[in-house]
Design a protein around this nucleic acid. Structure first.
Lengths: 336, 336
DNA sequence: AGCAATGGTGACAACGCTGTCAGATTTGGC
DNA sequence: GCCAAATCTGACAGCGTTGTCACCATTGCT
């Protein structure tokens, strides 16, 4: 077990000063080509890795990016991480995961977590990306951040955007086109901006089709399978039940599927069910769930890209809206 | 946007030396109680967070723990992370996620990743925890590690253990007790130690029940839903099909469920299906999947604990084996 | 009173690296 | 061949923290 090689070790072996080695390592000019070569060879031979603590101490950076989120579904978390890591590959930055229980109740706690983790920048997933106190505190403490699919204050910080409302409208239009006129909606967690944005999208589609508010029954959920079961039960156990259900994520859509089966309602013949997100579960349940795909990994990569640009002192580029895509599967069909 | 407070700032405001502040921050003795109090108050007022770069530079540490794994299911990844983070809460260490594509093909690449991330220690999930080259290289570079449910070389490093074989035997015995005598097995990825250990456990149960090898049909899979579908199809499309299928994880078990449904075979009346892991999907499919729960988060926390003990210079405690638990749900029933 | 042991405090250096600056060497223009 | 400009090189300081060590103050003991 050898001590890690330092610049000093390389300098001695190569017969140059530490500063020259440093110049070579950072691809700075003003080093003769032959010396540059020699230093590189020695560094490779010693398997040199720069000490980021020392680099960070000087530049007051840590080369750490914190990813914060609040117990969403596992596949969403993994997609976020995958997207961020894709962009970070080959960079000096590393990804630290910092899930936080409830940022809305304790915004200061989230920021304290980020500060004590000493991250240079933070990737904020919903719902923390929509909490003004969090953004204020981050601005104050000089921690850069990028917001992943925020629903409000779109002008603050750099954002990777999704048009949740348009996506909601798209999936609702799919059902309207199949002839459905009586709808059930299962909402997501009330604290998420996506919940109201997706609902607004549904309503856009309903209004355009001339569907009366009386024909729309809305139930609350919180994005969990369990909450979806309860809400689906309330929707489907009535005699004037809807012919189509819009669930605001796939876990709740799958739950609605399971409730329909338990009640003896064939899907999609008796009732159509659509989800949201195109999570793994949408392909694993039966019938497979019609849903809207949001390119989560690409968004996370975009947010990471924006964050890196900020950390390198670049300008904030204009936000772009990532496209959604309706994926029609077996759980939706023509109205009876 | 304020500069972060340093020890020097606190020292000036509290009218003491930097060293005394340091002593207070690290709960060292030899500071008068009133001074200790005063320093703590000033530190809190300035919202002081120690600079881990500086701390790390001195102690040649980074207070970073790397978690490595190789695209397992999202819920497994999240459980690992949750367990590790639970143990890390309140510690100075932070968790860096380092998924790596194929450690078996490129062990040196994985170690290079860990070295360049400058982690103090690594948590190795399967299959990298079973690759001797990886362990050798880590030993050589002085990166401590803890192995999460290794299947081989149990004497190397510190391990958080699972008795995969006993768990395999337990779930197989459940089916034997239901009267099944003709079995299909869907194996996991051939590179994982768990694959052969679980199979050995199945065989223990079969041998104890006097079931002939001819009545056991084994198909290969790789832990993905897709591979499970193909394997299940090969098992169920035959006339002498098994009355019970043992899938080595829940994704493949759910796939078998879906194939059975497509072939018009009622579960569990015509065929019983058991999974492994108690992943989310086991509760989300229909009928819900009988499976074996492995306490993944607790194991990850245990591994993290062992790693921290090593990093703090403690002794290696004896490994303990974490208990499995058979969870009987609707997908298994008496043999026809 | 005298002296050791203990408690309490701070000056200083060092961790590995890079910014600053001064100085040495080479190049190019006349 | 001479001077300015460009190219190259290294000594030194300092980032924020802690280990080492020296020192002063107090206590408890002959």
């Amino acid at each position: 077990m050898n001590r890690r090689a330092t610049i000093k070790d390389i300098a001695e072996q190569a017969g140059v000063s530490a500063k020259t080695v440093s110049r070579v390592m950072n691809d700075e000019p003003y080093v003769r080509d032959d010396i540059r070569e020699r230093v590189k060879r020695v560094a490779a031979a010693l398997d040199y890795h720069p000490n980021r603590n020392a680099q960070g101490l000087i530049s007051s950076r840590t080369f750490l990016i914190g990813l914060t989120y609040e117990r969403p579904s596992p596949s969403y978390v993994v997609d976020l991480q995958r997207g961020a890591l894709e962009r970070l590959a080959g960079e000096r930055y590393r990804l630290v995961v910092l899930p936080f229980a409830d940022a809305r109740e304790d915004p200061a706690g989230l920021v304290a977590l980020l500060r004590s983790a000493m991250v240079d920048g933070a990737l904020l997933a919903p719902p923390s990306c929509d909490i003004p106190e969090v953004l204020d505190a981050l601005d104050n403490s000089g921690i850069r951040y990028a917001r992943i699919t925020p629903g409000t204050m779109l002008e603050r910080g750099s954002c990777a955007l999704l048009d949740e409302r348009a996506a909601g409208r798209a999936i609702a239009e799919h059902l309207v086109q199949l002839g459905h006129r009586r709808f059930g909606v299962i909402l997501g967690h009330p604290g998420h901006a996506a919940t109201s944005a997706r609902l607004a999208g549904y309503r856009d589609a309903f209004a355009a089709a001339g569907i009366a508010p009386d024909d729309i029954r809305i139930e609350r959920g919180d994005f969990t399978f369990h909450s979806g079961e309860a809400a689906a039960h309330r929707l489907l156990a009535r005699t004037d039940r809807p012919t189509a259900i819009l669930a605001q994520n796939d876990d709740m859509g799958a739950a609605a599927l399971s409730v329909a089966r338990a009640l003896g309602l064939a899907v999609p013949d008796a009732v159509s069910i659509a989800g949201f997100d195109d999570a793994d579960i949408a392909r694993l349940c039966w019938p497979q769930l019609t849903t809207v795909e949001q390119p989560v990994a690409a968004i996370a990569a975009d947010a990471t890209d924006r964050l890196l640009k900020q950390l390198e002192g670049g300008e904030l580029a204009a936000a772009i809206t990532h496209p959604h895509r309706v994926i029609v599967r077996g759980s939706t069909g023509p109205a009876a």
